[in-house]
Design a protein around this nucleic acid. Structure first.
Length: 418
RNA sequence: GUGGCCGUAGCUCAGUUGGUUAGAGCGCCAGGUUGUGAUCCUGGAUGUCGGGGGUUCGAAUCCCCUCGGUCACCCCA
Protein backbone atom coordinates (compact mmCIF):
# COMPACT_ATOMS: atom_id res chain seq x y z
CA UNK A 1 0.00 0.00 0.00
CA UNK A 2 1.55 3.24 -1.06
CA UNK A 3 -0.30 5.27 1.51
CA UNK A 4 -1.04 3.32 4.70
CA UNK A 5 -3.94 4.02 6.99
CA UNK A 6 -1.73 6.01 9.32
CA UNK A 7 1.42 7.92 8.58
CA UNK A 8 3.69 10.06 10.68
CA UNK A 9 2.17 13.56 10.68
CA UNK A 10 3.48 15.99 8.03
CA UNK A 11 6.89 17.33 8.81
CA UNK A 12 7.72 14.53 11.23
CA UNK A 13 9.88 11.50 10.64
CA UNK A 14 10.51 8.09 12.06
CA UNK A 15 14.18 7.98 12.83
CA UNK A 16 15.68 4.55 12.33
CA UNK A 17 19.09 2.89 12.24
CA UNK A 18 21.68 3.84 11.26
CA UNK A 19 20.52 7.45 11.77
CA UNK A 20 19.47 6.79 15.35
CA UNK A 21 22.85 5.23 16.11
CA UNK A 22 24.68 8.23 14.71
CA UNK A 23 22.48 10.69 16.58
CA UNK A 24 22.95 8.85 19.84
CA UNK A 25 26.70 8.90 19.38
CA UNK A 26 26.63 12.56 18.45
CA UNK A 27 24.67 13.51 21.55
CA UNK A 28 27.05 11.44 23.69
CA UNK A 29 29.98 13.43 22.32
CA UNK A 30 28.22 16.69 23.05
CA UNK A 31 27.43 15.49 26.58
CA UNK A 32 31.08 14.67 27.09
CA UNK A 33 32.31 18.04 25.83
CA UNK A 34 29.75 19.94 27.90
CA UNK A 35 30.57 17.95 31.02
CA UNK A 36 34.28 18.63 30.60
CA UNK A 37 33.48 22.34 30.36
CA UNK A 38 31.50 22.31 33.61
CA UNK A 39 27.97 22.25 32.26
CA UNK A 40 25.27 20.19 33.93
CA UNK A 41 22.44 18.57 32.00
CA UNK A 42 19.01 20.08 32.44
CA UNK A 43 15.86 18.53 31.00
CA UNK A 44 12.84 20.81 31.13
CA UNK A 45 9.41 19.55 30.06
CA UNK A 46 8.62 19.55 26.36
CA UNK A 47 5.67 21.85 26.99
CA UNK A 48 5.26 24.97 29.04
CA UNK A 49 2.76 27.69 29.74
CA UNK A 50 2.49 29.45 26.41
CA UNK A 51 3.59 32.67 28.11
CA UNK A 52 7.12 31.33 28.50
CA UNK A 53 7.53 31.27 24.74
CA UNK A 54 5.62 34.43 24.01
CA UNK A 55 8.44 36.20 25.86
CA UNK A 56 10.77 35.14 23.03
CA UNK A 57 9.21 38.00 21.13
CA UNK A 58 5.84 38.51 19.57
CA UNK A 59 7.26 39.67 16.28
CA UNK A 60 9.11 36.43 15.68
CA UNK A 61 7.51 33.86 13.44
CA UNK A 62 8.53 31.19 15.90
CA UNK A 63 5.92 32.45 18.33
CA UNK A 64 3.34 34.23 16.23
CA UNK A 65 2.70 31.52 13.69
CA UNK A 66 4.73 28.41 14.37
CA UNK A 67 3.72 27.57 17.92
CA UNK A 68 1.91 24.34 18.68
CA UNK A 69 -0.60 25.31 21.34
CA UNK A 70 -3.45 23.52 23.05
CA UNK A 71 -5.59 23.79 26.10
CA UNK A 72 -5.10 21.02 28.64
CA UNK A 73 -7.87 19.51 30.72
CA UNK A 74 -7.18 21.96 33.51
CA UNK A 75 -7.85 24.89 31.21
CA UNK A 76 -4.20 25.93 30.96
CA UNK A 77 -2.91 27.18 27.63
CA UNK A 78 0.07 25.04 26.85
CA UNK A 79 2.61 25.22 24.05
CA UNK A 80 5.07 22.64 22.78
CA UNK A 81 8.47 24.24 23.04
CA UNK A 82 9.80 25.72 19.79
CA UNK A 83 13.26 26.02 21.35
CA UNK A 84 14.77 25.51 24.76
CA UNK A 85 16.47 28.75 25.72
CA UNK A 86 13.23 30.22 27.04
CA UNK A 87 12.53 27.00 28.94
CA UNK A 88 15.97 27.09 30.52
CA UNK A 89 15.43 30.69 31.56
CA UNK A 90 12.16 29.69 33.17
CA UNK A 91 14.00 26.90 35.01
CA UNK A 92 16.53 29.43 36.20
CA UNK A 93 13.86 31.79 37.48
CA UNK A 94 11.97 29.00 39.21
CA UNK A 95 14.94 27.14 40.75
CA UNK A 96 17.36 30.00 41.31
CA UNK A 97 20.60 28.04 41.00
CA UNK A 98 23.89 29.71 41.90
CA UNK A 99 25.34 31.94 39.19
CA UNK A 100 26.94 31.68 36.83
CA UNK A 101 24.69 28.77 35.96
CA UNK A 102 25.99 26.52 33.20
CA UNK A 103 23.47 24.12 31.73
CA UNK A 104 23.32 21.94 28.65
CA UNK A 105 20.36 20.16 27.16
CA UNK A 106 19.19 17.78 24.50
CA UNK A 107 15.73 17.15 23.16
CA UNK A 108 12.97 17.71 20.66
CA UNK A 109 11.48 21.04 19.68
CA UNK A 110 8.33 21.72 17.71
CA UNK A 111 7.51 24.33 15.15
CA UNK A 112 4.53 24.33 12.83
CA UNK A 113 6.32 25.00 9.55
CA UNK A 114 6.28 23.65 6.03
CA UNK A 115 8.86 20.88 5.95
CA UNK A 116 11.82 20.94 3.62
CA UNK A 117 15.32 19.57 3.58
CA UNK A 118 16.85 20.08 7.02
CA UNK A 119 13.67 21.53 8.46
CA UNK A 120 11.03 19.53 10.24
CA UNK A 121 8.14 20.15 12.59
CA UNK A 122 9.82 18.11 15.25
CA UNK A 123 13.57 18.40 15.45
CA UNK A 124 16.26 17.65 18.00
CA UNK A 125 18.72 20.13 19.33
CA UNK A 126 21.56 20.09 21.76
CA UNK A 127 22.44 23.35 23.37
CA UNK A 128 24.17 25.09 26.23
CA UNK A 129 23.41 28.21 28.22
CA UNK A 130 25.22 30.31 30.81
CA UNK A 131 23.03 32.54 32.92
CA UNK A 132 24.32 35.14 35.33
CA UNK A 133 27.51 36.40 33.74
CA UNK A 134 28.21 39.20 31.32
CA UNK A 135 31.89 38.31 31.06
CA UNK A 136 32.73 38.31 27.34
CA UNK A 137 35.17 35.46 27.99
CA UNK A 138 32.08 33.39 28.77
CA UNK A 139 30.89 34.22 25.26
CA UNK A 140 34.13 32.85 23.92
CA UNK A 141 33.87 29.77 26.09
CA UNK A 142 30.36 29.01 24.92
CA UNK A 143 31.36 29.38 21.27
CA UNK A 144 34.38 27.20 21.91
CA UNK A 145 32.18 24.45 23.32
CA UNK A 146 30.24 24.30 20.08
CA UNK A 147 33.41 24.49 18.02
CA UNK A 148 35.15 21.68 19.88
CA UNK A 149 32.04 19.61 19.43
CA UNK A 150 32.17 20.03 15.66
CA UNK A 151 35.83 19.10 15.76
CA UNK A 152 35.14 15.96 17.77
CA UNK A 153 32.46 14.69 15.40
CA UNK A 154 34.80 15.30 12.50
CA UNK A 155 32.83 18.03 10.79
CA UNK A 156 35.37 20.30 9.15
CA UNK A 157 33.43 22.39 6.68
CA UNK A 158 31.85 24.78 9.18
CA UNK A 159 32.06 28.55 9.21
CA UNK A 160 31.56 30.55 12.37
CA UNK A 161 29.78 33.81 11.61
CA UNK A 162 30.11 36.42 14.32
CA UNK A 163 28.43 39.73 14.96
CA UNK A 164 27.40 42.01 17.77
CA UNK A 165 23.91 43.45 17.96
CA UNK A 166 24.97 45.87 20.66
CA UNK A 167 22.95 46.72 23.71
CA UNK A 168 19.24 47.43 23.69
CA UNK A 169 19.82 51.14 23.15
CA UNK A 170 22.30 50.53 20.31
CA UNK A 171 19.92 48.15 18.75
CA UNK A 172 17.11 50.65 19.01
CA UNK A 173 19.13 53.38 17.29
CA UNK A 174 20.23 50.95 14.64
CA UNK A 175 16.69 49.72 14.06
CA UNK A 176 15.57 53.31 13.55
CA UNK A 177 18.37 53.94 11.07
CA UNK A 178 17.40 50.81 9.17
CA UNK A 179 13.75 51.78 9.17
CA UNK A 180 14.68 55.14 7.68
CA UNK A 181 16.95 53.57 5.08
CA UNK A 182 14.54 50.87 3.98
CA UNK A 183 11.58 53.23 3.99
CA UNK A 184 13.45 55.50 1.58
CA UNK A 185 13.82 52.55 -0.79
CA UNK A 186 10.53 50.99 0.05
CA UNK A 187 9.39 51.02 -3.56
CA UNK A 188 12.32 48.85 -4.65
CA UNK A 189 11.88 46.25 -1.95
CA UNK A 190 10.03 43.01 -2.55
CA UNK A 191 6.53 42.85 -1.19
CA UNK A 192 7.58 40.37 1.45
CA UNK A 193 10.35 42.64 2.63
CA UNK A 194 7.94 45.55 2.85
CA UNK A 195 5.81 43.47 5.19
CA UNK A 196 8.87 42.51 7.22
CA UNK A 197 9.85 46.18 7.38
CA UNK A 198 6.59 47.05 9.08
CA UNK A 199 7.06 44.30 11.64
CA UNK A 200 10.76 44.40 12.31
CA UNK A 201 13.20 46.41 10.14
CA UNK A 202 16.14 44.41 11.47
CA UNK A 203 14.84 41.26 9.89
CA UNK A 204 14.84 42.74 6.41
CA UNK A 205 18.60 42.21 6.53
CA UNK A 206 17.91 38.47 6.47
CA UNK A 207 16.19 38.55 3.09
CA UNK A 208 17.75 36.30 0.47
CA UNK A 209 15.58 37.68 -2.32
CA UNK A 210 17.64 38.99 -5.18
CA UNK A 211 15.85 42.38 -5.70
CA UNK A 212 16.51 43.30 -2.07
CA UNK A 213 20.24 42.70 -2.13
CA UNK A 214 21.39 46.07 -3.44
CA UNK A 215 19.35 47.92 -0.84
CA UNK A 216 20.59 45.64 1.91
CA UNK A 217 24.18 46.14 0.81
CA UNK A 218 23.71 49.89 1.03
CA UNK A 219 22.14 49.74 4.48
CA UNK A 220 23.93 51.14 7.53
CA UNK A 221 26.03 48.67 9.48
CA UNK A 222 25.46 47.67 13.05
CA UNK A 223 29.11 48.09 13.86
CA UNK A 224 28.79 51.85 13.59
CA UNK A 225 26.10 51.96 16.26
CA UNK A 226 27.79 50.01 19.04
CA UNK A 227 28.26 51.68 22.41
CA UNK A 228 31.80 51.75 23.81
CA UNK A 229 30.90 48.99 26.24
CA UNK A 230 29.49 46.74 23.56
CA UNK A 231 32.42 47.47 21.29
CA UNK A 232 34.93 46.60 24.01
CA UNK A 233 33.13 43.36 24.80
CA UNK A 234 32.97 42.41 21.14
CA UNK A 235 36.70 43.05 20.75
CA UNK A 236 37.36 40.87 23.76
CA UNK A 237 35.35 37.99 22.28
CA UNK A 238 37.32 38.23 19.06
CA UNK A 239 40.58 38.25 20.99
CA UNK A 240 39.42 35.19 22.90
CA UNK A 241 38.53 33.24 19.78
CA UNK A 242 41.85 34.17 18.23
CA UNK A 243 43.68 32.97 21.35
CA UNK A 244 41.85 29.63 21.11
CA UNK A 245 42.65 29.40 17.39
CA UNK A 246 38.99 29.27 16.49
CA UNK A 247 38.51 30.84 13.07
CA UNK A 248 35.59 33.20 12.62
CA UNK A 249 34.18 35.55 10.09
CA UNK A 250 32.68 38.89 11.06
CA UNK A 251 29.21 39.04 9.53
CA UNK A 252 27.99 42.60 9.93
CA UNK A 253 24.64 41.71 8.47
CA UNK A 254 24.05 38.64 10.62
CA UNK A 255 20.74 39.35 12.27
CA UNK A 256 19.30 36.42 14.09
CA UNK A 257 15.60 35.76 14.00
CA UNK A 258 14.87 35.63 17.67
CA UNK A 259 14.08 39.00 19.19
CA UNK A 260 15.81 38.44 22.47
CA UNK A 261 19.38 38.54 21.19
CA UNK A 262 21.78 41.36 21.94
CA UNK A 263 25.55 41.86 21.93
CA UNK A 264 27.33 38.72 20.75
CA UNK A 265 25.45 36.72 18.15
CA UNK A 266 26.81 33.90 16.08
CA UNK A 267 25.84 31.24 13.63
CA UNK A 268 27.48 28.07 12.38
CA UNK A 269 27.00 27.54 8.68
CA UNK A 270 27.82 24.36 6.80
CA UNK A 271 28.36 25.29 3.13
CA UNK A 272 28.68 21.62 2.21
CA UNK A 273 25.10 21.03 3.21
CA UNK A 274 23.25 21.03 -0.07
CA UNK A 275 20.09 22.70 1.14
CA UNK A 276 18.63 26.12 1.64
CA UNK A 277 18.74 25.50 5.37
CA UNK A 278 22.44 25.33 5.99
CA UNK A 279 22.72 26.95 9.41
CA UNK A 280 23.60 24.02 11.64
CA UNK A 281 23.74 26.02 14.83
CA UNK A 282 23.34 29.47 16.25
CA UNK A 283 23.14 31.48 19.38
CA UNK A 284 23.94 34.65 21.16
CA UNK A 285 23.59 36.74 24.23
CA UNK A 286 20.14 37.42 25.64
CA UNK A 287 20.59 39.88 28.46
CA UNK A 288 17.10 40.82 29.56
CA UNK A 289 15.26 37.60 28.73
CA UNK A 290 15.47 36.26 32.28
CA UNK A 291 14.01 39.51 33.60
CA UNK A 292 11.32 39.27 30.97
CA UNK A 293 10.31 35.95 32.41
CA UNK A 294 9.85 37.49 35.81
CA UNK A 295 13.29 36.76 37.18
CA UNK A 296 16.20 38.89 38.31
CA UNK A 297 18.00 40.98 35.73
CA UNK A 298 20.61 38.34 34.99
CA UNK A 299 22.38 38.24 31.63
CA UNK A 300 22.58 35.06 29.58
CA UNK A 301 24.20 33.54 26.56
CA UNK A 302 23.78 30.26 24.79
CA UNK A 303 23.42 28.35 21.59
CA UNK A 304 21.48 25.53 20.03
CA UNK A 305 22.73 23.08 17.44
CA UNK A 306 20.38 21.20 15.17
CA UNK A 307 21.11 17.49 15.33
CA UNK A 308 19.33 16.73 12.06
CA UNK A 309 21.12 19.38 10.08
CA UNK A 310 24.45 18.65 11.66
CA UNK A 311 24.04 15.05 10.59
CA UNK A 312 23.18 16.16 7.06
CA UNK A 313 26.32 18.26 7.06
CA UNK A 314 28.28 15.23 8.24
CA UNK A 315 26.91 13.22 5.33
CA UNK A 316 28.44 15.73 2.94
CA UNK A 317 31.90 14.87 4.22
CA UNK A 318 31.41 11.31 5.41
CA UNK A 319 31.82 12.24 9.05
CA UNK A 320 30.22 10.86 12.21
CA UNK A 321 29.60 7.30 11.11
CA UNK A 322 28.30 6.04 14.44
CA UNK A 323 28.92 2.83 16.30
CA UNK A 324 29.08 -0.61 14.74
CA UNK A 325 25.84 -2.35 15.63
CA UNK A 326 26.12 -5.43 13.43
CA UNK A 327 25.98 -8.78 15.19
CA UNK A 328 29.36 -10.30 15.96
CA UNK A 329 28.12 -13.83 16.28
CA UNK A 330 25.04 -15.65 15.03
CA UNK A 331 23.60 -18.57 16.94
CA UNK A 332 22.26 -21.31 14.65
CA UNK A 333 20.25 -24.01 16.37
CA UNK A 334 18.28 -26.84 14.76
CA UNK A 335 17.71 -28.79 17.96
CA UNK A 336 14.31 -28.82 19.57
CA UNK A 337 15.40 -27.37 22.90
CA UNK A 338 16.10 -23.88 24.10
CA UNK A 339 19.87 -24.03 23.59
CA UNK A 340 19.70 -21.13 21.15
CA UNK A 341 18.28 -18.77 23.72
CA UNK A 342 20.67 -19.94 26.37
CA UNK A 343 23.81 -19.60 24.25
CA UNK A 344 22.81 -16.20 22.87
CA UNK A 345 22.15 -14.96 26.38
CA UNK A 346 25.51 -16.24 27.58
CA UNK A 347 27.32 -14.50 24.73
CA UNK A 348 25.50 -11.25 25.38
CA UNK A 349 26.36 -11.33 29.07
CA UNK A 350 29.98 -11.66 27.96
CA UNK A 351 29.58 -8.34 26.13
CA UNK A 352 29.28 -9.79 22.65
CA UNK A 353 26.65 -8.69 20.12
CA UNK A 354 24.93 -12.00 19.53
CA UNK A 355 21.75 -12.64 17.61
CA UNK A 356 19.81 -15.59 16.29
CA UNK A 357 17.10 -16.58 13.86
CA UNK A 358 13.65 -17.34 15.12
CA UNK A 359 13.32 -20.96 16.22
CA UNK A 360 12.11 -23.61 13.81
CA UNK A 361 13.73 -22.36 10.64
CA UNK A 362 15.82 -24.68 8.51
CA UNK A 363 19.57 -24.73 8.95
CA UNK A 364 19.98 -23.31 5.48
CA UNK A 365 17.70 -20.41 6.31
CA UNK A 366 19.56 -19.78 9.55
CA UNK A 367 22.94 -19.87 7.87
CA UNK A 368 21.71 -17.45 5.25
CA UNK A 369 20.58 -15.09 7.97
CA UNK A 370 23.92 -15.52 9.72
CA UNK A 371 25.77 -14.61 6.56
CA UNK A 372 23.59 -11.63 5.82
CA UNK A 373 23.91 -10.26 9.34
CA UNK A 374 27.58 -9.56 8.86
CA UNK A 375 28.55 -11.67 11.87
CA UNK A 376 32.11 -12.94 11.90
CA UNK A 377 31.26 -16.35 13.25
CA UNK A 378 28.33 -18.71 13.75
CA UNK A 379 27.74 -21.04 16.65
CA UNK A 380 26.07 -24.16 15.26
CA UNK A 381 24.10 -26.48 17.50
CA UNK A 382 22.13 -29.46 16.17
CA UNK A 383 20.84 -32.61 17.87
CA UNK A 384 24.32 -34.23 17.84
CA UNK A 385 25.91 -31.27 19.58
CA UNK A 386 23.15 -31.17 22.15
CA UNK A 387 23.69 -34.86 22.85
CA UNK A 388 27.46 -34.42 23.18
CA UNK A 389 27.19 -31.08 24.99
CA UNK A 390 29.23 -29.43 22.27
CA UNK A 391 28.87 -26.69 19.68
CA UNK A 392 30.21 -26.04 16.21
CA UNK A 393 32.18 -22.82 15.72
CA UNK A 394 32.03 -21.76 12.09
CA UNK A 395 33.92 -18.77 10.66
CA UNK A 396 31.76 -16.85 8.23
CA UNK A 397 34.41 -14.72 6.62
CA UNK A 398 37.59 -15.80 4.96
CA UNK A 399 38.73 -19.37 5.18
CA UNK A 400 38.90 -21.68 8.14
CA UNK A 401 37.00 -24.83 8.90
CA UNK A 402 34.31 -25.37 11.42
CA UNK A 403 35.61 -26.63 14.73
CA UNK A 404 33.89 -28.31 17.63
CA UNK A 405 34.16 -27.15 21.22
CA UNK A 406 32.64 -28.11 24.52
CA UNK A 407 29.53 -26.25 25.50
CA UNK A 408 31.38 -24.41 28.26
CA UNK A 409 34.03 -23.17 25.79
CA UNK A 410 31.63 -21.38 23.41
CA UNK A 411 32.19 -17.82 24.61
CA UNK A 412 35.94 -18.27 24.67
CA UNK A 413 35.98 -19.84 21.21
CA UNK A 414 33.85 -17.06 19.75
CA UNK A 415 36.02 -14.35 21.26
CA UNK A 416 38.98 -15.58 19.23
CA UNK A 417 37.22 -14.42 16.11
CA UNK A 418 36.39 -10.88 17.31
C1' G B 1 0.43 29.91 4.47
C1' U B 2 2.27 30.09 -1.11
C1' G B 3 4.59 27.80 -5.48
C1' G B 4 7.34 23.85 -8.70
C1' C B 5 7.98 18.59 -9.21
C1' C B 6 6.27 13.70 -7.82
C1' G B 7 2.71 9.31 -5.85
C1' U B 8 2.56 1.86 -9.86
C1' A B 9 4.89 -4.71 -5.25
C1' G B 10 8.71 -4.27 1.02
C1' C B 11 12.64 -1.01 -2.00
C1' U B 12 14.26 1.33 -6.91
C1' C B 13 11.53 1.98 -11.08
C1' A B 14 9.27 0.57 -16.45
C1' G B 15 4.37 0.72 -18.41
C1' U B 16 3.98 3.21 -26.21
C1' U B 17 -1.19 7.76 -29.32
C1' G B 18 -6.33 5.23 -23.30
C1' G B 19 -7.02 -1.41 -25.31
C1' U B 20 -6.95 -8.51 -22.64
C1' U B 21 -5.65 -11.67 -16.28
C1' A B 22 -0.30 -4.56 -14.60
C1' G B 23 5.67 -5.75 -15.35
C1' A B 24 11.30 -5.82 -14.26
C1' G B 25 15.43 -5.74 -10.94
C1' C B 26 16.56 -6.10 -5.89
C1' G B 27 14.66 -8.11 -1.47
C1' C B 28 11.61 -12.01 0.82
C1' C B 29 9.98 -17.43 1.06
C1' A B 30 10.73 -22.54 -0.60
C1' G B 31 13.40 -26.18 -3.31
C1' G B 32 17.96 -28.02 -5.99
C1' U B 33 21.84 -29.89 -1.29
C1' U B 34 16.57 -34.91 4.24
C1' G B 35 22.87 -30.70 9.33
C1' U B 36 25.75 -25.51 6.89
C1' G B 37 25.88 -19.15 4.27
C1' A B 38 28.03 -15.96 0.14
C1' U B 39 27.86 -17.82 -6.28
C1' C B 40 24.47 -20.49 -9.46
C1' C B 41 19.65 -22.71 -11.07
C1' U B 42 14.21 -23.48 -10.45
C1' G B 43 9.67 -22.19 -8.41
C1' G B 44 6.47 -19.01 -5.24
C1' A B 45 3.92 -14.93 -2.50
C1' U B 46 2.71 -9.69 -2.14
C1' G B 47 -0.45 -4.41 -5.69
C1' U B 48 -8.03 -1.39 -4.03
C1' C B 49 -1.65 1.65 -9.90
C1' G B 50 -2.35 7.19 -2.87
C1' G B 51 -8.00 8.12 -2.29
C1' G B 52 -12.80 9.93 -4.34
C1' G B 53 -15.56 11.55 -8.45
C1' G B 54 -15.97 12.30 -13.79
C1' U B 55 -15.21 11.40 -19.37
C1' U B 56 -15.22 6.67 -22.24
C1' C B 57 -17.45 0.56 -24.94
C1' G B 58 -12.78 0.51 -22.09
C1' A B 59 -8.57 4.58 -17.47
C1' A B 60 -2.30 3.26 -14.12
C1' U B 61 -2.72 6.49 -18.66
C1' C B 62 -7.35 12.09 -19.87
C1' C B 63 -10.19 15.91 -16.48
C1' C B 64 -11.64 17.74 -11.46
C1' C B 65 -11.20 17.41 -6.23
C1' U B 66 -8.55 15.49 -2.19
C1' C B 67 -4.56 13.20 0.75
C1' G B 68 0.60 12.49 1.00
C1' G B 69 5.87 13.11 -0.33
C1' U B 70 9.76 16.34 -1.94
C1' C B 71 12.22 20.91 -3.01
C1' A B 72 11.88 26.15 -2.69
C1' C B 73 9.78 30.88 -0.66
C1' C B 74 8.76 32.69 4.29
C1' C B 75 11.41 31.62 8.80
C1' C B 76 14.97 29.16 11.42
C1' A B 77 18.57 24.73 14.09
Amino acid sequence: MAQPLFQAPPGTRDLMPPVTDRMRAMVAIFADEATKAGFGQVTPPMFEDVGVFVRIGESTDVVNKELYTFEDKGGRTIALRPEQTASLCRVFVQRRPLTPWKAWYFGANFRYEQAQKGRYRQFDQVGAEVIGSSDPDIDTEIIALAWRFYERIGLTNVTLLLNSLGDAADRGRYTNALRTHFTEHRGSLTEQSRETLDRNPLRVMDSKRQPDQAIIDAAPLLGDFLSDDARTAFDRVQAGLTALAIPFEIAPRLVRGLDYYNRTTFEFVAPGLDAAQNAVGGGGRYDGLVANLGGPDEPGIGFALGIDRTLLACDAEDAMQGPDTTAQVWVVVTAEGIEGLEVADRLRRAGIRADRTESGRSMKAQMKAANKSGAAVAVVIGPDEVRDEQAGIKPLRGQGDQTTVDNQQIVQAVQEFL
